[in-house]
Design a protein around this nucleic acid. Structure first.
Length: 426
RNA sequence: GGAGGGGUGGCCGAGUGGCUUAAGGCGGCGCCCUGCUAAGGCGUUUGGACCGAAAGGUUCUCGAGGGUUCGAAUCCCUCCCCCUCCGCCA
């Protein structure tokens, strides 16, 4: 969440940055937050004064009783009882205001970074492109057709078991999925300096609030209601909360984690176009990178993190482009996001295979993740960053469509061959 | 799932209603003493909120949340977590 002190001290700057998101309601939310904050501070002063009075006078009762002065003790008790009633009323009032302010702030998104342009999808600039479309002007088969023909993908049976959006990989398809996961994890841990983590796949509501998935986006997650748990839509939830309510020692920052997890997304209402094959799923695999950084190094860390995701695409030899997301497309907690899109030549589309973002201190404030800059100094909030490295399903799509041959076979990218065990899927 | 025992500061640990602004110890930091070191002495050491230019002041924080009381680490209720045993189980 946003820092109320920052809203108080620079309300116009906060409003201006939020305006980039294109939601006119946000300016009003800031105004409301300022009102609530002012009311809160007034009430805090009153409540503290009354508590100070009680702390000063109440111990007197004990002294009077020890002295045997029961009558005087009763007088003080009566006075304190009145004060206590008045205090309780003020405390309730204060709790109500604090609650309202907190609820409001939990629903205000992060402020976009200075270089994030306003507008929607069409306004997200393409920063760079890498690779070439595959050679040959024959007609490529879309991955779902090819996958079925090769016996490596079985969508109808997945639908029968769970529903549409729950794919079944078989034979070399399953092996390719597993190979991609292992290749990516190995690259990030061996070459990019991330520590591998194998986290829980269900998280509680507190963890979901910490990342910003609750309260606003509960409907996008699968919910195990009886136990109050949510199936992770991304490893971001468990990884970010790994250090919730902690103060990291000076030497412990930065922290880098990489994790493979399945991801579960309901995304109600997302049916319709662009959902064929593996393009949009309820369950897919992803390797995620996560970083806890000092504020002064978080900008550089975002560039580096994005480079680590690009390294996967380059190693796989897949054509891709990098977009800077415009304000209207930016995720709720994000200050800045680069999307990596791989080219899928058969469906003729760029597919988002990675989203690399900085949350600045937004998640850290919600999840209470701090660090001590130097021994003896006051704790500060870390900056959290995460990025896919990569989403496996759409990477699979790009591979099947990019590396297919006219005879219906698929060449295995060289770096994956040790993992898959064959050069070609036939 | 059942039974029992626990959760106190960076760590250990005392504390069953006021004299606790949480004893004592360990560790950390600072200073003193000592030609070095050891030992010793003194002080300091959770995090947040509010007021203040600052110095400083007030307040909250003993797993979490409610309650009782003039007053709660302490009494009551609910929940969470840890340990032991039993049951079930890959």
């Amino acid at each position: 969440m946003l820092d109320i002190k920052r809203i108080r001290e620079q309300p116009d700057a906060v409003r201006d940055r939020l305006a980039v998101r294109g939601d006119p309601g946000l300016a009003a939310a800031i105004d409301r937050a300022l009102e609530l904050d002012e009311a809160r501070r007034g009430l805090v002063a009153e409540v503290d004064d009354m508590r100070a009075r009680r702390n000063e006078v109440s111990p007197r009762v004990g002294e009077l009783k020890r002295e045997g002065n029961e009558e005087e003790a009763q007088t003080v008790i009566r006075e304190m009882r009145e004060l206590g009633d008045a205090l309780a009323a003020k405390e309730d009032e204060l709790a109500g205001v604090e609650d309202a302010l907190h609820t409001l702030l939990m629903e205000v998104p992060n402020t976009p970074a200075e270089d994030v342009p306003p507008g929607g999808e069409a306004d997200s600039p393409v920063l760079r492109e890498w690779g070439e479309p595959p050679a040959g002007d024959w007609e490529r088969r879309p991955h779902w057709e090819l996958g079925e023909a090769l016996g490596i993908l079985d969508l109808p049976r997945g639908a029968r078991i769970a529903g549409s959006g729950f794919p079944v990989y078989k034979g070399l398809g399953a092996r390719l999925e597993r190979g991609l996961i292992n290749f990516m994890i190995d690259l990030h841990t061996d070459r990019h300096g991330y520590t591998e983590v194998w986290p829980p796949l269900l998280v509680n509501a507190g963890a979901a609030r910490g990342t910003g998935h609750l309260p606003k986006f509960g409907d996008d997650m699968y919910h195990a209601g009886e136990d109050g748990l949510y199936l992770v839509p991304t490893a971001e939830l468990p990884l970010t909360n790994l250090h919730a309510d902690e103060i990291l020692a000076p030497d412990d920052v930065p922290v880098r984690y990489a994790a493979y997890t399945p991801c579960f997304r309901r995304e109600a209402g997302a049916h319709g176009k662009d959902t064929r094959g593996l393009l949009r799923l309820h369950q897919f695999d992803k390797v995620e990178m996560m970083r806890f950084e000092r504020p002064e190094s978080s900008d550089d860390a975002l560039e580096e993190l994005t480079g680590h995701a690009e390294a996967v695409l380059q190693a796989l030899g897949l054509r891709y482009r990098v977009l800077l997301l415009a304000g209207g497309d930016l995720g709720f907690g994000n200050a800045k996001t680069y999307d990596l899109e791989a080219w899928a030549p058969a469906v003729g589309r760029w597919l988002e295979v990675s989203s690399c973002s900085t949350y600045t201190d937004y998640q850290a404030r919600r999840a209470e993740i701090r660090y001590r800059p130097a021994p003896g100094e006051k704790p500060e909030y870390v900056h959290t960053l995460n990025g896919s490295g990569l989403g496996i399903a759409r990477t699979m799509v790009a591979i099947l469509e990019h590396y297919q041959h006219p005879d219906g076979t698929v060449e295995v990218p060289e770096v994956l061959r040790p993992y898959v065990g064959v050069d070609r899927i036939t």
